[in-house]
Design a protein around this nucleic acid. Structure first.
Lengths: 180, 180
DNA sequence: GCGCACATGTAATTGGTTACATGATTGA
DNA sequence: TCAATCATGTAACCAATTACATGTGCGC
Protein backbone atom coordinates (compact mmCIF):
# COMPACT_ATOMS: atom_id res chain seq x y z
CA UNK A 1 0.00 0.00 0.00
CA UNK A 2 2.69 2.44 0.93
CA UNK A 3 5.05 0.99 -1.59
CA UNK A 4 5.97 4.33 -2.96
CA UNK A 5 6.65 5.99 0.32
CA UNK A 6 10.33 5.95 0.95
CA UNK A 7 11.48 3.88 3.85
CA UNK A 8 14.82 4.38 5.47
CA UNK A 9 15.42 1.09 7.21
CA UNK A 10 17.17 1.22 10.53
CA UNK A 11 20.09 -1.03 11.33
CA UNK A 12 17.67 -3.30 13.14
CA UNK A 13 15.52 -3.48 10.03
CA UNK A 14 18.50 -4.57 7.98
CA UNK A 15 19.47 -7.12 10.60
CA UNK A 16 15.97 -8.62 10.39
CA UNK A 17 16.02 -8.59 6.60
CA UNK A 18 19.40 -10.29 6.58
CA UNK A 19 18.24 -13.01 8.94
CA UNK A 20 14.99 -13.90 7.24
CA UNK A 21 16.67 -13.77 3.88
CA UNK A 22 18.39 -17.03 4.79
CA UNK A 23 15.20 -18.67 5.88
CA UNK A 24 11.76 -17.46 7.01
CA UNK A 25 11.43 -16.90 10.71
CA UNK A 26 8.72 -16.08 13.20
CA UNK A 27 8.90 -12.95 15.29
CA UNK A 28 9.80 -15.10 18.21
CA UNK A 29 12.48 -16.87 16.21
CA UNK A 30 14.06 -13.53 15.37
CA UNK A 31 13.99 -12.50 18.99
CA UNK A 32 15.73 -15.71 20.03
CA UNK A 33 18.44 -15.24 17.43
CA UNK A 34 19.16 -11.69 18.60
CA UNK A 35 19.27 -12.88 22.16
CA UNK A 36 21.53 -15.83 21.65
CA UNK A 37 23.82 -14.94 18.81
CA UNK A 38 25.01 -11.89 20.76
CA UNK A 39 26.45 -10.80 17.46
CA UNK A 40 25.50 -7.19 17.34
CA UNK A 41 23.69 -5.63 20.20
CA UNK A 42 20.17 -5.43 18.94
CA UNK A 43 17.32 -5.35 21.33
CA UNK A 44 15.29 -8.52 21.31
CA UNK A 45 12.43 -7.19 23.37
CA UNK A 46 8.93 -7.70 21.95
CA UNK A 47 8.35 -3.96 21.96
CA UNK A 48 11.21 -3.64 19.48
CA UNK A 49 10.80 -6.64 17.21
CA UNK A 50 7.08 -6.77 16.61
CA UNK A 51 6.65 -3.11 15.70
CA UNK A 52 9.69 -3.42 13.43
CA UNK A 53 8.11 -6.38 11.65
CA UNK A 54 4.88 -4.46 11.29
CA UNK A 55 6.79 -1.57 9.76
CA UNK A 56 8.63 -3.84 7.36
CA UNK A 57 5.36 -5.47 6.37
CA UNK A 58 3.73 -2.13 5.78
CA UNK A 59 6.42 -1.19 3.31
CA UNK A 60 6.32 -4.65 1.81
CA UNK A 61 9.90 -5.58 2.54
CA UNK A 62 8.72 -8.71 4.31
CA UNK A 63 5.53 -10.74 4.17
CA UNK A 64 3.84 -13.16 6.50
CA UNK A 65 3.51 -16.75 5.39
CA UNK A 66 1.43 -19.42 7.06
CA UNK A 67 1.95 -22.96 5.94
CA UNK A 68 -0.69 -24.60 8.06
CA UNK A 69 -2.93 -23.66 10.94
CA UNK A 70 -0.78 -25.54 13.40
CA UNK A 71 2.57 -23.96 12.68
CA UNK A 72 3.48 -20.44 13.67
CA UNK A 73 3.38 -17.78 11.00
CA UNK A 74 6.77 -16.88 9.60
CA UNK A 75 8.10 -13.86 7.84
CA UNK A 76 9.67 -14.06 4.46
CA UNK A 77 11.67 -11.40 2.65
CA UNK A 78 9.96 -9.96 -0.43
CA UNK A 79 11.60 -9.20 -3.78
CA UNK A 80 11.49 -5.55 -2.86
CA UNK A 81 13.07 -6.34 0.50
CA UNK A 82 15.80 -8.32 -1.19
CA UNK A 83 16.62 -5.46 -3.52
CA UNK A 84 16.84 -2.99 -0.68
CA UNK A 85 18.98 -5.35 1.36
CA UNK A 86 21.43 -5.93 -1.48
CA UNK A 87 21.62 -2.24 -2.30
CA UNK A 88 22.59 -1.57 1.29
CA UNK A 89 25.19 -4.31 1.28
CA UNK A 90 27.09 -3.13 -1.74
CA UNK A 91 26.74 0.62 -1.47
CA UNK A 92 30.02 2.49 -1.29
CA UNK A 93 31.54 2.86 2.15
CA UNK A 94 31.70 6.44 3.35
CA UNK A 95 34.18 8.20 5.56
CA UNK A 96 31.54 8.54 8.22
CA UNK A 97 30.87 4.81 8.26
CA UNK A 98 34.45 4.10 9.16
CA UNK A 99 34.50 6.81 11.77
CA UNK A 100 31.30 5.98 13.55
CA UNK A 101 29.54 2.96 12.14
CA UNK A 102 31.88 0.01 12.34
CA UNK A 103 29.04 -2.15 13.64
CA UNK A 104 27.04 -1.48 10.53
CA UNK A 105 29.98 -2.35 8.30
CA UNK A 106 30.51 -5.62 10.14
CA UNK A 107 26.84 -6.47 9.77
CA UNK A 108 27.04 -5.73 6.08
CA UNK A 109 30.07 -7.93 5.76
CA UNK A 110 28.33 -10.77 7.58
CA UNK A 111 25.37 -10.72 5.20
CA UNK A 112 27.50 -10.35 2.11
CA UNK A 113 28.52 -13.97 2.24
CA UNK A 114 25.67 -15.28 0.12
CA UNK A 115 24.39 -12.01 -1.33
CA UNK A 116 27.46 -10.57 -2.96
CA UNK A 117 29.97 -11.97 -5.37
CA UNK A 118 33.68 -12.19 -4.82
CA UNK A 119 34.47 -8.92 -6.55
CA UNK A 120 31.95 -7.04 -4.45
CA UNK A 121 33.40 -8.51 -1.30
CA UNK A 122 36.93 -7.57 -2.27
CA UNK A 123 35.82 -4.08 -3.26
CA UNK A 124 34.09 -3.68 0.04
CA UNK A 125 37.07 -4.82 2.04
CA UNK A 126 39.72 -2.89 0.15
CA UNK A 127 37.66 0.27 0.36
CA UNK A 128 37.18 -0.39 4.07
CA UNK A 129 40.92 -0.86 4.45
CA UNK A 130 41.81 2.30 2.53
CA UNK A 131 39.37 4.46 4.44
CA UNK A 132 40.64 3.02 7.70
CA UNK A 133 44.19 3.87 6.72
CA UNK A 134 43.22 7.44 6.01
CA UNK A 135 41.27 7.70 9.21
CA UNK A 136 44.11 6.37 11.31
CA UNK A 137 46.51 8.80 9.71
CA UNK A 138 44.16 11.66 10.49
CA UNK A 139 43.79 10.55 14.08
CA UNK A 140 47.53 10.25 14.40
CA UNK A 141 48.08 13.69 12.89
CA UNK A 142 45.55 15.19 15.26
CA UNK A 143 47.24 13.45 18.14
CA UNK A 144 50.67 14.72 17.19
CA UNK A 145 49.47 18.29 17.15
CA UNK A 146 47.04 18.28 20.04
CA UNK A 147 48.30 15.72 22.50
CA UNK A 148 50.25 18.26 24.52
CA UNK A 149 47.08 20.24 25.09
CA UNK A 150 45.07 17.22 26.12
CA UNK A 151 44.55 16.12 29.68
CA UNK A 152 46.21 12.82 30.49
CA UNK A 153 43.08 10.69 30.47
CA UNK A 154 41.83 12.34 27.33
CA UNK A 155 45.10 11.44 25.66
CA UNK A 156 44.88 7.86 26.83
CA UNK A 157 41.29 7.54 25.67
CA UNK A 158 42.28 8.99 22.33
CA UNK A 159 45.05 6.42 22.05
CA UNK A 160 42.45 3.77 22.64
CA UNK A 161 40.63 5.09 19.60
CA UNK A 162 43.74 4.76 17.50
CA UNK A 163 44.48 1.29 18.85
CA UNK A 164 41.03 0.00 18.08
CA UNK A 165 41.08 1.40 14.57
CA UNK A 166 44.39 -0.32 14.01
CA UNK A 167 42.86 -3.58 15.15
CA UNK A 168 40.05 -3.12 12.68
CA UNK A 169 42.59 -2.46 9.97
CA UNK A 170 44.50 -5.61 10.80
CA UNK A 171 41.30 -7.64 10.70
CA UNK A 172 40.45 -6.12 7.38
CA UNK A 173 43.80 -7.03 5.88
CA UNK A 174 43.60 -10.53 7.28
CA UNK A 175 40.23 -11.10 5.64
CA UNK A 176 41.45 -9.70 2.34
CA UNK A 177 44.36 -12.08 2.18
CA UNK A 178 42.02 -14.84 3.29
CA UNK A 179 39.75 -14.17 0.34
CA UNK A 180 42.44 -13.79 -2.31
CA UNK B 1 11.50 22.62 40.98
CA UNK B 2 11.53 19.04 39.87
CA UNK B 3 14.41 18.24 42.14
CA UNK B 4 12.77 15.19 43.57
CA UNK B 5 11.81 13.65 40.29
CA UNK B 6 14.36 11.06 39.36
CA UNK B 7 16.44 11.80 36.32
CA UNK B 8 18.27 9.13 34.45
CA UNK B 9 20.91 11.07 32.56
CA UNK B 10 21.74 9.85 29.10
CA UNK B 11 25.31 9.39 27.96
CA UNK B 12 25.07 12.78 26.29
CA UNK B 13 23.94 14.31 29.57
CA UNK B 14 26.97 12.88 31.31
CA UNK B 15 29.24 14.09 28.56
CA UNK B 16 27.89 17.61 29.01
CA UNK B 17 28.22 17.41 32.78
CA UNK B 18 31.79 16.21 32.46
CA UNK B 19 32.71 19.01 30.13
CA UNK B 20 31.23 21.90 32.06
CA UNK B 21 32.59 20.48 35.28
CA UNK B 22 36.04 21.57 34.11
CA UNK B 23 34.89 25.01 33.25
CA UNK B 24 31.53 26.67 32.45
CA UNK B 25 30.61 26.64 28.80
CA UNK B 26 27.95 28.10 26.58
CA UNK B 27 25.67 25.83 24.58
CA UNK B 28 27.61 26.81 21.54
CA UNK B 29 30.90 26.06 23.26
CA UNK B 30 29.69 22.58 24.07
CA UNK B 31 28.61 22.04 20.50
CA UNK B 32 32.03 23.05 19.21
CA UNK B 33 33.78 20.71 21.59
CA UNK B 34 31.68 17.78 20.47
CA UNK B 35 32.31 18.65 16.88
CA UNK B 36 36.02 19.10 17.11
CA UNK B 37 37.21 16.75 19.80
CA UNK B 38 35.74 13.83 17.87
CA UNK B 39 36.17 11.97 21.11
CA UNK B 40 32.96 10.06 21.35
CA UNK B 41 30.37 10.38 18.70
CA UNK B 42 27.88 12.69 20.25
CA UNK B 43 25.64 14.75 18.11
CA UNK B 44 26.50 18.41 18.19
CA UNK B 45 23.39 19.60 16.42
CA UNK B 46 21.43 22.39 18.09
CA UNK B 47 18.37 20.17 18.24
CA UNK B 48 20.29 17.84 20.51
CA UNK B 49 22.35 20.14 22.71
CA UNK B 50 19.89 22.86 23.62
CA UNK B 51 17.06 20.56 24.65
CA UNK B 52 19.56 18.53 26.66
CA UNK B 53 20.73 21.65 28.47
CA UNK B 54 17.15 22.61 29.16
CA UNK B 55 16.53 19.17 30.63
CA UNK B 56 19.64 19.37 32.80
CA UNK B 57 18.59 22.80 34.00
CA UNK B 58 15.11 21.61 34.84
CA UNK B 59 16.52 18.94 37.10
CA UNK B 60 19.04 21.38 38.49
CA UNK B 61 22.13 19.52 37.45
CA UNK B 62 23.42 22.62 35.67
CA UNK B 63 22.65 26.28 36.02
CA UNK B 64 23.02 29.26 33.77
CA UNK B 65 25.44 31.97 34.79
CA UNK B 66 25.78 35.39 33.20
CA UNK B 67 28.78 37.42 34.17
CA UNK B 68 27.94 40.52 32.20
CA UNK B 69 25.51 41.61 29.57
CA UNK B 70 28.15 41.47 26.89
CA UNK B 71 29.38 37.93 27.38
CA UNK B 72 27.40 34.88 26.39
CA UNK B 73 25.63 32.99 29.15
CA UNK B 74 27.45 29.90 30.28
CA UNK B 75 26.33 26.78 32.05
CA UNK B 76 27.88 25.66 35.27
CA UNK B 77 27.53 22.33 37.01
CA UNK B 78 25.56 22.42 40.27
CA UNK B 79 26.44 20.60 43.46
CA UNK B 80 23.69 18.14 42.67
CA UNK B 81 25.09 17.71 39.17
CA UNK B 82 28.55 17.11 40.57
CA UNK B 83 27.28 14.43 42.92
CA UNK B 84 25.44 12.63 40.16
CA UNK B 85 28.45 12.84 37.86
CA UNK B 86 30.81 11.42 40.46
CA UNK B 87 28.40 8.67 41.39
CA UNK B 88 28.28 7.62 37.75
CA UNK B 89 32.05 7.71 37.43
CA UNK B 90 32.82 5.42 40.32
CA UNK B 91 29.89 3.05 40.20
CA UNK B 92 30.85 -0.61 39.80
CA UNK B 93 31.34 -1.80 36.25
CA UNK B 94 28.81 -4.38 35.17
CA UNK B 95 29.10 -7.30 32.82
CA UNK B 96 26.79 -5.57 30.40
CA UNK B 97 28.97 -2.45 30.29
CA UNK B 98 31.91 -4.48 29.07
CA UNK B 99 29.77 -6.33 26.56
CA UNK B 100 27.97 -3.40 25.04
CA UNK B 101 29.01 -0.09 26.49
CA UNK B 102 32.72 0.35 25.98
CA UNK B 103 32.15 3.92 24.86
CA UNK B 104 30.55 4.75 28.15
CA UNK B 105 33.41 3.19 30.09
CA UNK B 106 35.94 5.19 28.09
CA UNK B 107 34.01 8.39 28.75
CA UNK B 108 33.94 7.58 32.44
CA UNK B 109 37.66 6.96 32.41
CA UNK B 110 38.32 10.27 30.67
CA UNK B 111 36.39 12.24 33.28
CA UNK B 112 37.89 10.35 36.20
CA UNK B 113 41.17 12.17 35.83
CA UNK B 114 40.28 15.03 38.16
CA UNK B 115 37.19 13.60 39.83
CA UNK B 116 38.46 10.35 41.23
CA UNK B 117 41.42 9.45 43.34
CA UNK B 118 44.12 7.00 42.46
CA UNK B 119 42.52 4.08 44.24
CA UNK B 120 39.23 4.61 42.45
CA UNK B 121 41.02 4.74 39.12
CA UNK B 122 42.91 1.54 39.81
CA UNK B 123 39.74 -0.16 41.03
CA UNK B 124 37.96 0.91 37.90
CA UNK B 125 40.68 -0.33 35.59
CA UNK B 126 41.33 -3.63 37.34
CA UNK B 127 37.64 -4.37 37.40
CA UNK B 128 37.44 -3.44 33.74
CA UNK B 129 40.36 -5.76 33.02
CA UNK B 130 38.91 -8.67 34.97
CA UNK B 131 35.50 -8.38 33.34
CA UNK B 132 37.13 -8.16 29.94
CA UNK B 133 39.11 -11.31 30.64
CA UNK B 134 35.95 -13.16 31.56
CA UNK B 135 34.11 -11.83 28.55
CA UNK B 136 36.86 -12.85 26.16
CA UNK B 137 36.95 -16.33 27.65
CA UNK B 138 33.21 -16.63 27.18
CA UNK B 139 33.43 -15.47 23.60
CA UNK B 140 36.23 -17.91 22.95
CA UNK B 141 34.31 -20.76 24.54
CA UNK B 142 31.25 -19.93 22.45
CA UNK B 143 33.42 -19.81 19.36
CA UNK B 144 34.99 -23.18 20.06
CA UNK B 145 31.61 -24.84 20.35
CA UNK B 146 29.68 -23.02 17.67
CA UNK B 147 32.16 -22.00 15.01
CA UNK B 148 31.54 -25.11 12.93
CA UNK B 149 27.85 -24.23 12.72
CA UNK B 150 28.53 -20.64 11.76
CA UNK B 151 28.63 -19.36 8.22
CA UNK B 152 32.07 -18.19 7.14
CA UNK B 153 31.39 -14.47 7.35
CA UNK B 154 29.63 -14.87 10.65
CA UNK B 155 32.69 -16.60 11.98
CA UNK B 156 34.99 -13.88 10.72
CA UNK B 157 32.80 -11.15 12.18
CA UNK B 158 32.76 -13.01 15.47
CA UNK B 159 36.54 -13.16 15.40
CA UNK B 160 36.55 -9.42 14.95
CA UNK B 161 34.60 -9.18 18.17
CA UNK B 162 37.20 -11.23 19.98
CA UNK B 163 40.05 -9.25 18.46
CA UNK B 164 38.65 -5.93 19.47
CA UNK B 165 37.99 -7.07 23.00
CA UNK B 166 41.57 -8.23 23.21
CA UNK B 167 42.71 -4.81 22.09
CA UNK B 168 40.63 -3.24 24.82
CA UNK B 169 42.18 -5.60 27.32
CA UNK B 170 45.68 -4.71 26.21
CA UNK B 171 44.90 -1.01 26.52
CA UNK B 172 43.52 -1.59 29.96
CA UNK B 173 46.62 -3.40 31.12
CA UNK B 174 48.84 -0.73 29.63
CA UNK B 175 47.04 1.99 31.54
CA UNK B 176 47.18 0.01 34.76
CA UNK B 177 50.90 -0.39 34.56
CA UNK B 178 51.13 3.26 33.56
CA UNK B 179 49.32 4.30 36.74
CA UNK B 180 51.17 2.03 39.14
C1' DG C 1 -1.12 -28.26 39.14
C1' DC C 2 2.86 -25.37 38.38
C1' DG C 3 6.28 -23.23 36.04
C1' DC C 4 8.70 -22.52 31.95
C1' DA C 5 9.31 -21.71 27.21
C1' DC C 6 6.68 -20.43 23.28
C1' DA C 7 4.37 -16.63 21.08
C1' DT C 8 2.47 -11.89 20.12
C1' DG C 9 1.14 -7.89 20.96
C1' DT C 10 -0.07 -2.63 22.89
C1' DA C 11 0.69 1.92 25.36
C1' DA C 12 3.26 5.62 27.34
C1' DT C 13 7.17 7.97 27.28
C1' DT C 14 11.20 10.00 25.65
C1' DG C 15 15.54 11.09 23.49
C1' DG C 16 17.49 12.01 19.15
C1' DT C 17 17.32 13.48 14.25
C1' DT C 18 16.25 16.66 10.77
C1' DA C 19 14.82 20.74 9.21
C1' DC C 20 13.50 25.25 9.83
C1' DA C 21 14.13 29.90 11.68
C1' DT C 22 16.41 33.93 13.48
C1' DG C 23 19.73 37.31 14.63
C1' DA C 24 24.44 39.33 16.06
C1' DT C 25 29.19 40.01 15.14
C1' DT C 26 33.42 40.07 12.63
C1' DG C 27 36.77 40.15 9.12
C1' DA C 28 37.90 40.33 4.11
C1' DT D 1 28.77 44.41 1.82
C1' DC D 2 28.86 39.85 1.99
C1' DA D 3 30.06 35.60 3.81
C1' DA D 4 31.31 33.05 7.70
C1' DT D 5 31.11 32.13 12.35
C1' DC D 6 28.91 32.84 16.64
C1' DA D 7 24.70 31.78 19.05
C1' DT D 8 20.09 29.86 20.32
C1' DG D 9 16.21 28.01 19.71
C1' DT D 10 11.49 25.35 17.98
C1' DA D 11 8.60 21.74 15.63
C1' DA D 12 7.60 17.39 13.50
C1' DC D 13 8.62 12.95 13.43
C1' DC D 14 10.09 8.46 14.83
C1' DA D 15 12.40 4.49 16.78
C1' DA D 16 13.48 2.31 20.93
C1' DT D 17 12.75 1.32 25.84
C1' DT D 18 9.90 -0.17 29.51
C1' DA D 19 6.10 -2.04 31.29
C1' DC D 20 1.92 -4.19 30.88
C1' DA D 21 -1.10 -7.82 29.10
C1' DT D 22 -2.55 -12.25 27.31
C1' DG D 23 -2.73 -16.90 25.94
C1' DT D 24 -0.94 -21.81 24.57
C1' DG D 25 1.44 -26.11 25.22
C1' DC D 26 4.64 -29.11 27.40
C1' DG D 27 7.05 -31.66 30.89
C1' DC D 28 7.65 -32.74 35.73
Amino acid sequence: MEKNDTIKPTLLDYAILGLIQEKPLSGYGIRKLFEESALGNYSSSPGTIYPALKRLQKFELVKKITQSTTTTARFQITTRGGVILKKWLIKPIEKNDVEKKIDELLLRFAFMETLADKKQKIDFLTSFRDLLNTHIQELQAFYNIESNNMPLHGRLAFQYGIDSNKTTLKWCKKIISHLT
